[in-house]
């Protein structure tokens, strides 16, 4: 499969492709990160997962539509930035935690919010959930969603999107 087909396949929701890419480069990347950045296995695995999520996001958001290099070079490029970001944020967290424990509190609040969002989405109903996930997570345009979900036209999709979001908000507000 060429790079164009890979990107198009991932964009169209073929999860098998992203899994295959994940498996194909995983070991090689972990060994490389260990060699050049002295990462242990846990750090290298974390970085690899972060870079794969970033790769997926770049495709879904339309930031990556065509690869000018091969896929491995592109992934390693993201990986180099991710390892630096990860180490920078770890260093920041360390110095922050020495001064206060607000960070832990913030993390708990954030986790609580995420759990509420997940619960609200589960109670929302499959059709609305799918529409909102396509828009806010997969970054599909209204026109693309209209075609994928076979709605009448873009106005219908847009209207439904706001109705679903409004409904989700009501459920979210009622979850304590």
């Amino acid at each position: 499969m060429d790079n164009g087909s890979l990107i198009a396949g991932i964009k169209n929701g073929n999860d098998k492709i992203i899994e295959d890419i994940y498996l194909k480069y995983r070991d090689e990347f972990i060994v490389w990160l260990n060699k050049y950045y002295k990462s242990d296995f846990d750090e290298a695995s974390d970085v690899y997962q972060l870079l794969m999520v970033q790769f997926y996001e770049n495709i879904m958001s339309g930031r990556l539509v065509e690869l000018t290099s091969d896929i491995k070079t592109y992934l390693y490029g993201i990986g180099k930035n991710k390892i630096r970001e990860l180490r920078e944020s770890s260093a920041r967290e360390l110095s922050f935690n020495l001064e206060s424990d607000i960070s832990t509190e913030e993390v708990l609040i954030q986790e609580g919010k995420m759990n509420r969002v997940e619960q609200a989405l589960d109670e929302l109903g499959e059709a609305c959930k799918r529409l909102l996930e396509l828009y806010y997570y997969q970054k599909r345009s209204v026109a693309e969603i209209t075609v994928t979900l076979e709605y009448k036209n873009a106005d219908t999709t847009k209207n439904l999107k706001y109705k679903c979001l409004g409904r989700l908000r009501k459920i979210y507000a009622n979850i304590v």
């Binding site: 899994e19 995983r26 997962q49 999520v53 996001e57 995420m114 969002v117 997940e118 989405l121 996930e133």
Partner: peptide, 27 residues
């Protein structure tokens, strides 16, 4: 909510990668 939907999607993807990792070794 909108940020949460995005982050949940990423969390699901990471979970999927962790599941794949469970069957793989430490290179």
């Amino acid at each position: 909510l909108t940020k949460g939907i995005e982050e949940l999607g990423n969390a699901k993807l990471k979970r999927k990668f962790k599941e794949l990792d469970a069957n793989l070794g430490n290179p």
